[in-house]
Design a protein around this nucleic acid. Structure first.
Lengths: 148, 148
DNA sequence: CGCAATTGAGTTGTGCGCAATGTACTTTGG
DNA sequence: CCAAAGTACATTGCGCACAACTCAATTGCG
């Protein structure tokens, strides 16, 4: 057989579509606080752990400097974070939340709650999806001989 | 509570990461046939049903003309598809596979098989993930009052 | 010590994704 | 029959994602 399965049977397509639909759902609330989805998720990482370097942040978000540098520049421009060149190793830049950036967490949490309340999915379904998505990511990443 | 859950607990982040990791996995094989992942998935839709209009294709892929127009232009430039202005309604453009585009299906199928063989995930896990991803997409889409 | 290799961040170029807008064509209502 | 409304596609602008590259700082090895 040399045929390819139809669109709906493609796992890759389903993941792609789910991800974009989700980004779309966030687009309903995040603009209120002036954020895009990737900016939001970057702040989530910082709310969890502040003061990390760009590359450390990139490792957690699975993003490289080519994506993060301009994104962080925009967040700094909004006054939500600060970029500090480190004294010990001047190649490194550490990222620090400003008071404004820290203050955004509660508003973002409220927006996120609203978004998920609107989605008709059970807790157990969400949990299963979360753990399977992690499984898939881990499995797919281990095959790709990541060079970074 | 005004805090936001950690990165690993974010369903949204897990979906985002899974989708990008998967795109990355395809990046290992698709360049052989000169395609990006969205171009590949567009061809999958055409292999499934040829001769549709741009908007019909967009509905199936959940993409709008702003994304599809340049993408289709690139595919046409590679000689894989043809764009025909319809006689009956000249606003419409129908998309048709060329023999070269049709011939690509078997090669693409082989590449896809290789990619999935490298991913250590069971059939039942893949099926569960597929169906949950569909569930999520449907649930999240129904809340967003989509105007298109 | 001195210089080559490595590392951390940034820049550039290409393509995707989407909102907003533009343009040509078709349908509808008077 | 013609003007207004609606439709199908294209274009523009912005941000994300990633590869490839540059540059400066640091590390390591002779």
């Amino acid at each position: 057989m040399t045929k390819i399965a139809g669109l709906d049977d493609q796992l890759c397509f389903a993941l792609h579509a789910a991800s974009r639909t989700m980004t779309n759902a966030y687009r309903a609330g995040l603009p209120e606080i002036g954020l895009t989805y990737p900016q939001f998720i970057t702040l989530v990482a910082l709310w969890e752990q502040d003061g990390t370097t760009v590359s450390e942040l990139g490792a957690r978000l699975h993003l490289d400097s080519g994506t993060l540098s301009p994104l962080l520049k925009r967040l700094a421009g909004m006054g939500l974070i600060e970029r500090r060149r480190e004294a010990a190793d001047e190649r490194r830049v550490s990222i620090h939340l400003t008071p404004e950036g820290r203050a955004l967490e509660s508003r973002a949490a409220a927006i996120q709650r609203d978004i998920f309340q609107g989605i008709d999915i059970t807790d157990s379904e969400a949990e299963a999806l979360l753990s399977l998505a992690h499984r898939f990511t881990a499995a797919a990443e281990s095959t790709t001989q990541t060079s970074r």
